[in-house]
Design a protein around this nucleic acid. Structure first.
Lengths: 163, 163
DNA sequence: TGCCGATAATTTGGGCCCGAACGATTAGCG
DNA sequence: CGCTAATCGTTCGGGCCCAAATTATCGGCA
């Protein structure tokens, strides 16, 4: 939203369309930049690290969550990854078809499905995750305003304000 | 990714799967929280403000960009909104079908398409945007660590590191 | 003038995304 | 024990998302 135009240009244009209405331009800048940043980082990591393994962002997150917490229930993956169970079902089918994970119905509770990585899935993550983290480090290294922990805290504030 | 488990739990699980490998957990926390925050804010705004107008986040962004800069070329909307032209084409067709905007081929350059809001589109934005901004303010009001301009700056640092 | 490379928007194909509806299973309460 | 409400995962429908291929147009150069 705050793309090629400067913030001031945008502000004056918005103001002219709303007359005397009071707007919070700082709040606008935060949400606008939040989305540009998230998409930009996502696309960057998909192109630099994930493309060689032909993985989407979401598929990688699913593999990562399962890798850390296996065996884990479907609902747990969705909660941990931050997407709906409907979305997850499709992604699990894709990754299962590619031989990276398995689904298994729980014996103690017939409603639950337990997900685990296959050896191929574990091999993939053991190779891919260090590369992924190196690129994460590369990106966040450029944060000059404030420090990393503070950046993470501000983002957590946004999460808790909306969840 | 840093969902129901604490950061320390996740760290020790990750470490146990990678042995002695050096990882940057602060960088992990930043990118992880960046996505949770973006999705959380997006879902929140879609449910609280956008649902009553039956608009998705992306559709709203498109309307907003056109509202501010009309008449604007397709490529300009995509750049300003931060998505691909392929994505935009579909969304424009949706919004055109609902009578919120119009497409018109440029007379000076037959390759370009100029997009403008209809009166209905302008009425919608004039009513919706103040509500949207009020909710943005509501969300960002909870940022206690550091101030809003610093938050926006950190996000811009992330964008410039990846674009 | 006629061609050719560059540019703009759209279409295509495959995948992600969510809410709502659905079928299966379980827990709890009388 | 039997019934009902809750829970879990999946499916369905509609929409978003991008890279690559496609169609149309333009600019420049011989």
């Amino acid at each position: 939203m705050a793309g090629q135009h400067t913030l001031n240009e945008t502000e004056s244009e918005v103001a002219s369309r709303l007359g005397g209405l009071k707007l919070d331009f700082e709040a606008m800048a935060v949400t606008s930049n939040l989305f540009r940043a998230a998409n930009s980082v996502r696309n960057h990591l998909e192109r630099t690290v994930l493309a060689k393994a032909d993985l989407t962002w979401t598929a990688f997150v699913v593999l990562w969550v399962v890798w850390i917490w296996e065996p884990i229930e479907t609902r747990g993956i969705a909660a941990e990854g931050g997407f709906s169970k409907a979305t997850l079902s499709g992604v699990l089918t894709t990754l299962e078809g590619r031989g990276f994970l398995t689904r298994e119905r729980s014996t103690s509770d017939g409603r639950l499905v337990l997900v685990s990585l296959t050896p191929a899935g574990r091999r993939l993550m053991k190779k891919l995750f260090p590369e992924f983290n190196a690129e994460e480090r590369n990106i966040t290294r450029h944060i000059t305003t404030g420090d990393l922990p503070q950046a993470a805290q501000i983002l957590r504030d946004l999460i808790s304000a909306t969840e």
